[in-house]
Design a protein around this nucleic acid. Sequence first.
DNA 1: AAGCGATGTCATCGTACGATGACATCGCCG
DNA 2: CGGCGATGTCATCGTACGATGACATCGCTT
Lengths: 225, 225
Amino acid sequence: MGQSGRVDRVERAARGGAEATVTPTTRRRDARRSRERLLAAAAELFAERGYAGTSLRAVAERAGVDAALVARYYGGKDGLYRAVLAADPVVSPVVDESDEGHEADDEARRRAADELAGLLARMVDRWENGPATTVGQNVFRCDLDDAAAAATAERVGERVLPLLRAAAEPPGGPDSELRAELATVVLLGIGVARTAGTLPALAAADPEELGVYARALLDTVLGRR
Amino acid sequence: MGQSGRVDRVERAARGGAEATVTPTTRRRDARRSRERLLAAAAELFAERGYAGTSLRAVAERAGVDAALVARYYGGKDGLYRAVLAADPVVSPVVDESDEGHEADDEARRRAADELAGLLARMVDRWENGPATTVGQNVFRCDLDDAAAAATAERVGERVLPLLRAAAEPPGGPDSELRAELATVVLLGIGVARTAGTLPALAAADPEELGVYARALLDTVLGRR
DNA sequence: AAGCGATGTCATCGTACGATGACATCGCCG
DNA sequence: CGGCGATGTCATCGTACGATGACATCGCTT
C-alpha cells in the first residue's frame, strides 16, 4: 500500500560510473534486487502465514515486483520456499566449527560454555527484536512435506545442534544428542510460542527475564547444574 | 481408499428396537454419526496439514461423507475448525477445578504435586500413542487468525495452565503465570516437535525417558528443586 | 400407509491460485 | 548507434477450492 507500484525513477541519472561495476545498485532493472526483495518478502510471509497460506501474488505485491518473476528466478513456489529456508539465519551468526579437538578438554569445555552463553544472548536479542524464523517455526510444524522437513532438519543440525551438543555435560555423554535436541525445543520453543502470541504472559515477558529462565532450563537439560 | 464410498447396508435390519431410542447407532442416515466422522477426520487433517492446507473435500473423503454436509452441520470451514478446537482434548482428562481454597495449604500443595504428576503421565502416554493435538500445535503456530488464536488460548488456559499454575512453587508467587506458560512450552513443545519429526533423536526417544527429562525441566521452571 | 421433516447427493458458481508464454522495454556491448 | 540478451509486464490457462441451492431419498410420527 502507498508505494504506488512504480518505484521512483528520479535518481536514474544518479548512477555515476563510480560504483563497483559488479553491483550497480541503482538500476531500474536489477535482477539481483528483485530476487532479494522477493526472498525477503517471502521469508516474512511464509513465517506469518505458513506455506499453504502464502500466495505468490501476495509475496510479489509485498516485494513490489511482478509475480511472474518468482517463476523466473526461483522456478516456482517450492523453489522460493527452499531458498527462504536456505537463507534463514535461524539464529544470527554462523557457528564456526572449523577447529575441534585441537584443544585441551577443559579449554574446550570453557569454550563450549562461552558459545552457549553467546547463543543464549543472541536468542534473547532475537526475542526482543525479531519474530521467530521460518526454520524455528518449522521445528514445531507437523504439516511439512519431506523436502521442507529435510531442509529444516539440515539447517538446525548445522546451526544450532552442534553448539548445544558441545555444551552438554559431560560432552558426548549418554543422551547427549537427545539432550541437545531437548535444549533446542526449549530455546526455539520459547521464541516461537512468543511470536505465536497464544501465551499472554510469555508474549509480554521481558526477554532478559526469559533469558534467565531459559538459562536455567538449558543447564538442567544439558546436565550442567 | 478401499471403503468404496458406499458403506455396507447389510446390517440394516440389525436395528432391533432394543437399543436406546435416543442413539440409533445403526441408521443409514444418521446426522450425528456424520457430524462425528467429519469432526474426527477434520481433527486429523487439520493437525496433519494445517488449516490452509486442509480442503473440505479431503475431510469429507476421509470421513466417508459428502462435502456439502460440512456446510450443513458446521456452517463452513471456519465453523468446522472452531468445532475441532472446541473438542480438542489437549491432554486427555478434564481438570477438575470445582473445589479450591477449601483445603489447608500443605494439602493443596500435595494435591497440586499429584496433579502435576498425573499431567506428566498423561503427556508421556500421549507421546507414546498419539500425535500432537491441534491445540498443542497451535501454541507454536504464528499463522493463526484471531479466532483460532483466541480459541487456542482459551483451551490451553482452561486445560493446562491452571494445573501448572497451581504446581508452581511458591504457588501464586512472582512470575507464577510466566512460569506456568514456560512449563506449557516445555510440555507441549516436546510433543509437537516429536510429531513434527525434525529432531531425529527426540522423535526416536523413549517416551518414558522423555518424561524424566520433562519432569526435571518442569521442576526447574516451576521452582520445585 | 401417508406425509413431512431430516438427511444425503449432485451439479454448479465464482474466486483465487500457480504456472506459462508472448510481448515490451531496458541496458550493455561492440 | 544498432543489435541483442537481460529484465519486466501482461494476459491467460487449467485447476482446486469453498460455498450454495436444487433435488433425491430416507425414516420417524401419526
